[in-house]
Design a protein around this nucleic acid. Structure first.
Lengths: 205, 205
DNA sequence: GTAGTGACTATAATCTAAACTAGTCACTCG
DNA sequence: CGAGTGACTAGTTTAGATTATAGTCACTAC
């Protein structure tokens, strides 16, 4: 865990295969319990009752397995955020809940599933596709909320949408990116609420 | 560099002493060139022509020397910020320049004096007094700018001053804290400008 | 052809003994 | 007494020999 990877960890073999799922399940259990580093590919092979070589018929590398788990983990956060947004009525409320849920879900992952969080954090640090996809997805959700707010007349419309989204993304970044969140745990509960207020004030028409 | 220190590294002996200055000068040169870790207290002793034991008549620990250097380094940034603020006329402009100068000076330190930057970063991570003082000083300057803006009628006055300052502090944090700035280098040039605009919009009366 | 593997290599992690360093203290010298 | 130090220790870092691991490939069995 030190070099900058070209980071295109592919999957091999059939995308939908029983053994692939077994690998992913075993990896999730092992990574969560022992951590990414302390889990060997042989451990995973043993767990599913196949040889190590067979695992490489489905994954390009250990990192590719890590990515799969990381992706699953980050998808959990995205799902919580999506649910929060869906459960709100006004765009203002959607934004507030989005930001708050994002941070609290991540913090909860940090404390309850530290080993998985660490993979996510490492993933973000190395710019793995799983982390990038995650950030993009969050931005998409944000874009949707802002657009809706503009359409309903709640938010100002002068600034280009991209620009507005980008700067809000900058505000949220310390709480979106798992690598950064670690350093902001002390304020991760209240900051999103206060920052949401600030952002919303700046969005006033 | 691993444990959480109780972090009250004191100075010993006379605060104003020729030898103390010599130590600090030698430390600055050595830390800047070889880094904090690779510099031994004996190296510093040799550089000033005294024994290692004598150094401990002036500093409690190696960390205390590190703090002194770190303090000097961070003071450089503060000075640049103060100058930028002083050179601006309106509070709006002061805030813009403050934020921009803060980030650009820090980034420049990162690239031109990496070894010293690393000490500052470590210092921030461990919550050394030098880093805390720095953050407080930045906040003071910010408070002054906001208050001035309120008095001149440029900024809104409803929100309690503390609250306003705190949330702006949260926005600036990723660019103030050397530990965090590292991870934001990719946006450290433009982000302060865009975030300043966002903050200023939210401050509109 | 498909499902699966043992044996292999180059690289990375781990272990351990030796070397080094932070910090102290009793001491000297003027 | 005040300026300054050599010699010491407990804890840490390092080097380098050893072991473990990621990843490949030629192969078997069906």
């Amino acid at each position: 865990m030190s070099e900058i990877e070209p980071s295109i960890p592919q999957s091999r073999g059939p995308a939908d295969h029983n053994v692939r799922d077994q690998i992913v399940d075993a990896a999730e259990a092992h990574f969560s319990h022992y951590g990414y580093d302390k889990t060997t590919v042989s451990d995973l092979a043993k767990a599913i009752g196949f040889s190590k070589a067979y695992i490489y018929k489905f994954f390009d590398s250990k990192q590719a397995i890590g990515e799969a788990i990381c992706g699953k983990t980050l998808t959990t956060i995205v799902a919580a955020v999506e649910e929060a947004v869906a459960g709100a009525t006004t765009p203002t409320d959607k934004f507030r809940r989005m930001f708050k849920t994002l941070a609290s879900t991540s913090v909860s992952l940090f404390f309850n599933d530290r080993k998985l969080y660490d993979i996510a954090s490492y993933s973000a640090g190395e710019g793995w596709p799983s982390a990038q996809t995650y950030c993009e997805r969050i931005r998409q959700i944000l874009t949707e909320v802002v657009r809706e707010g503009r359409e309903s007349g709640e938010f100002e419309r002068k600034t280009p949408l991209d620009e507005t989204v980008h700067v809000i993304d900058l505000v949220m970044r310390p709480y979106v990116n798992p690598l950064l969140l670690q350093y902001n745990l002390d304020v991760a509960e209240e900051a999103p609420i206060q920052l949401a207020n600030l952002v919303l004030r700046s969005l006033a028409p």
